[in-house]
Design a protein around this nucleic acid. Structure first.
Lengths: 214, 214
DNA sequence: GTCTATAATCCGATAGAC
DNA sequence: GTCTATCGGATTATAGAC
C-alpha cells in the first residue's frame, strides 16, 4: 500500500491543477483523498507544507521537460530542444507554471524553502549554460550569457503570461507558431541595422546581478 | 461635499494598492471609509462593481503615463517617451499594473465590462501606432506593426513580471538600467548575423491575430 | 490514524429600524 | 444614508474519543 502522505500529495496536485490556488483548501483536499480534514494534519503540518510539496512537484516536472534536451548532439539543438520543452510545459501545465511564479506570501510562506530555491537556481543555471554554449558555437552574439538569458527569458515569460492572461486571442497551436515567430524576431532584432548601430553608444551600462530563480 | 461614491472609490484604491486583492474586503473598505459595510451597498451593487471601478482608475492612470509622450516631436521620441512612461508606471504602481493583468474571474466577473475592454484596445492600438511610426521613420524594420509590437510587449511585460516576482534581485534603479539594456538587446538582436540569416527560412508562418488588450 | 465536535475568524450580502 | 443585527457560508486548525 502506498504511503498515505504520497497519496495526499497526489490529490493535492490534482486539486490545485484543477481549481488553482483559490479552489485549494484543506477540506476539499480531504474530501478528494476520502478522509476528513483533521486527518491530513497527521501527515502535514498545515496547508503551507502541502503547497510547498506541490511546488516541488511542479519544479521536478518542469526540470524533466527541460533536461530531456541534454541528450541532443549540438549546442543549437540542446538550446532549441529546451525551448520546445519549455513551450510544451507551459501549454500542457499552465497551473504548474503559475505556481512556480507565485509570490511566497500567496502560498502562505515568508520565504521559499531552501531546497526549492536551489531547484530554481539549477534551472536558471541550465539556461545560462545553454546560452553560453550557443555563444561559443557562433549562434548567439558574444557577451555576458546571464544578460542574454535574461532578455530571452523575459521575452518567453512575457509571451506565456500574455497567452495565459488571454491577451493573445489565439489557440494553442497558433500560440506555438507565434511564440517561435516572435523568438525569431528577438534573434534577428527588431531595429533596422542603421538604427541598431546608432543605439550602441546610447545603451546604459549593464547591471551586475546575482541571479536567484528560474 | 464630495460625492460619497467617489470617496468610497478613493478608499477602495488605497485599500487595494496597499494590501492587494487578498486584503480587499467590503468590511475593510467600510472601516477605511469610516462607515459600516452595509452602507457601501447604497453606492455600489457589490464587491465586483467596486473592483471594476478600481480597474478603471488603473487604466486611466496607465493611459496618462503613456499618452504624455504624444507631445514629442519625432516618432522615436514618442516611442521611447512612451517606454519611459511605461517603466515609470510599473515601478511606481506595481499593484495597478497587477490588477490590469488579472483574469476577470479573480475579480469575481465572468467578463470585463465593455468600457474597460475598450480602454485596453485603445492602449494596444496606441503601441501599434508608435511601432508603425517607427517603421515609417526607418527606426524599426519593416513588417507587420502588430507582430513587432507583440514581441516588444512580451519582452517588456516579462521583464516587469520577473522583477515584481522577485526573480531579478535588483533595486528599482538597477531595474531601470536592466530594462533598457535588455530592450537594446531586443532592438539589435541576440543572434549573430550569420545565424540570423540561416534563421530566415526556418521561421514558421506568422499568425493572423485580432488583438484584444493592452 | 481517523473520527466527531468545535473553536475562532473571516467573508458577502440582506432585513428592517431610524 | 446609515445603522444594528443577522443569515449562511467559507476557512485553518485543535481537542479528545476511539
Amino acid at each position: 500500500m502506498m504511503d498515505q502522505r504520497e497519496r495526499i500529495l497526489g490529490c493535492a496536485c490534482d486539486l490545485y491543477l484543477q481549481g488553482g490556488l483559490d479552489g485549494f483548501s484543506m477540506r476539499k483536499l480531504a474530501r478528494e483523498v476520502g478522509i476528513t480534514a483533521p486527518a491530513i494534519y497527521r501527515h502535514y503540518d498545515g496547508r503551507e507544507e502541502v503547497l510547498s510539496d506541490v511546488l516541488r512537484e511542479a519544479h521536478r516536472t518542469f526540470a524533466r521537460y527541460l533536461y530531456a534536451a541534454l541528450g541532443e548532439p549540438t549546442a543549437l539543438e540542446r538550446f532549441s530542444g529546451a525551448g520546445e520543452g519549455y513551450l510544451n510545459f507551459v501549454i500542457e501545465h499552465p497551473r504548474w507554471y503559475g505556481i512556480m511564479h507565485m509570490a511566497p506570501e500567496q502560498l502562505g510562506m515568508d520565504v521559499l524553502p531552501s531546497d526549492i530555491e536551489a531547484m530554481q537556481s539549477a534551472i536558471h543555471q541550465f539556461w545560462i549554460d545553454r546560452v553560453r554554449e550557443c555563444m561559443q558555437s557562433g549562434i548567439l552574439k558574444d557577451g555576458d550569457p546571464e544578460m542574454a538569458s535574461i532578455t530571452m527569458w523575459a521575452h518567453a515569460h512575457g509571451m506565456v503570461q500574455l497567452f495565459h492572461e488571454g491577451c493573445l486571442p489565439v489557440t494553442e497551436e497558433e500560440f506555438r507558431m507565434l511564440f517561435k515567430a516572435s523568438g525569431a524576431r528577438l534573434m534577428a532584432g527588431v531595429a533596422t541595422e542603421e538604427f541598431a548601430k546608432d543605439l550602441e553608444g546610447m545603451v546604459p551600462e549593464e547591471v551586475d546581478i546575482g541571479m536567484k530563480t528560474g
